[in-house]
Nucleic acid binder design. Structure first.
Length: 401
RNA sequence: GCGUCGGUACUCAAGUGGUCAACGAGGGCAGACUGUAAAUCUGCUAGCUUCGGCUUUCGGAAGUUCGAAUCUUCCCCGACGCACCA
């Protein structure tokens, strides 16, 4: 049993920074955290994809604070719930197969290890909710369901929206919040952490904890990593930072965030002090070039995940590539037969998707040979040794066999 | 089971016998401009091409037709409504 540390500064940080809401109240939770009692806290993550991303990192960072304070922290993988899928705005989610879930999960622990400790004296526990949810009988489920009315469940904005817009809403989707809430009951937790989009689900869990365990479950909702103007980072945008990315990729993706995400990113994903962030806000408002601060954000994000050294390298790399337009390090290398057409070489190595794609790029003047500083204009060009640049971001090094 | 409406490229979504590789929007890619971006403007976005064209696509299969994404038949899938549940 590890010792509980009562560090008011850290506790305040946990209660203030990146917080979208605390239930039942910030004050109540503070009293609890100051009491010296060892609490059990968890956040659930549905393995719907192979990577954890920075959105997850926000929660994990919060968990880390609690781990450092000596509390019992559980990293819960929603392997069962992901089979149902947290309802989405547009439609019922695709059901994942067991294989997909296993595959997605396989790297999560490793990725999360970058931010949180699964080893040591006060190790974070890695759990999966399949352990208890798969054992529920219909009887149990009915009992669970009987605690809520349809009216209550339909309070969820998402459900309202789906109904209003006549988008099918299946029965199993509306019990998702109950299952999530049951996780807290099964683990007997004192607190749940989750994204602001999870508030409804987490509050349902609060009710369940009261009903089943007669226990107050605290809820801390994290701010989401969206830019204030609504431009989000996401998989579809291609600029979502995955915890599985290497440092350079992370840096690049962070730099492609809109300016409006800088302050949010600094608050949620770095350890830059809030005073400093306020400062930066003023500076940007008074017309200072935001790029400097975006670089700071990118650096700090990478640092918090990969460490100082890798962050510096990533920054240098990025500056060389984009500011000075040099060739980055670690360019992918491809060995090709001599006499091969450049087109064949690039297509067969899947650097460009088809011959037509290649033709288009040549017409657009998007391909250059770096060493010779020559723009490729002939579709039938034969490959030569060296680095080719395709567009702004793609590089490949060709080595003739 | 009956009925109605649907299934179109990465996504959304037009098209309802030829002018359709298929409008438009989003996304993506590229170029210009910048502070990497974002915003903006421009072009591209099925495959193959000797750049003349050729080939394959509109849930699936078969058919009608000189010609089909568009019509017919059967099948598969979805939504909605109704009925049934002895």
């Amino acid at each position: 049993m590890s010792k509980i540390i009562i560090d008011e500064e850290k506790i305040d940080k946990f209660l203030e920074r990146g917080v979208a809401g605390i239930f039942p109240s910030k004050e109540a939770l503070k009293t609890k955290l100051m009491s010296g009692e060892r609490l059990t806290i968890y956040q659930g993550f549905d393995p719907t994809g192979p990577y954890l991303h920075v959105g997850h990192a926000i929660g994990i960072r919060a968990l880390k604070i609690l781990q450092d304070l000596g509390h019992e922290v559980i990293f819960l993988v929603g392997d069962f719930t992901s089979k149902i899928g947290d309802p989405d705005k547009g439609s019922t989610r695709k059901v994942l197969t067991d294989e997909e879930i296993e595959k997605n999960m396989s790297n999560w622990k490793k990725q999360a290890t970058q931010l949180i400790d699964f080893k040591g004296e006060n190790a974070v526990k890695f759990e999966r909710n399949n352990k208890w949810l798969s054992k529920l009988k219909l009887e149990d489920i009915l009992k669970l369901m009987s605690n809520f009315t349809i009216q209550q469940i339909l309070q969820r904005d998402l459900f309202k929206k789906r109904l209003k817009e006549d988008i099918p809403l299946k029965l199993h989707e509306i019990i998702y919040p109950l299952m999530q809430g049951y996780d807290g009951v099964a683990m007997g937790v004192d607190m749940e952490i989750g994204g602001a989009d999870q508030i409804f689900n987490m509050l349902v869990g609060r009710d369940l904890s009261k009903i089943y365990l007669n226990k107050e479950k605290f809820v801390r909702a994290n701010k989401m990593m969206d830019a204030p103007d609504g431009i989000t980072m996401s998989k579809t945008k291609g600029n979502g930072i995955n915890l599985g990315d290497d440092a350079s990729q992370m840096f690049g993706k962070a730099m492609s965030y809109p300016d409006s995400a800088i302050l949010n990113g600094l608050e949620l994903l770095t350890d830059i002090s809030m005073d400093e962030i306020k400062n930066i806000e003023t500076k940007i408002k008074t017309g200072e070039n935001p790029m400097r601060f975006k670089k700071l954000m990118a650096y700090e994000i990478v640092k918090s995940i990969k460490g100082k050294k890798e962050a510096s390298v990533a920054q240098e790399n990025w500056e060389n590539t984009f500011s000075k337009k040099e060739t980055p390090e670690n360019v992918d290398e491809f060995i090709v037969e001599s006499g091969m057409l450049l087109m064949e070489a690039l297509v067969s190595n899947k650097i460009v998707s088809s011959n037509n794609d290649f033709r288009r790029l040549v017409e657009e003047g998007a391909i250059t040979h770096k060493e010779e500083d020559k723009k490729i204009t002939d579709v039938k060009e034969v490959v030569i040794n060296g680095v080719y640049k395709i567009g702004k971001k793609r590089f490949c090094k060709i080595i003739i066999k």
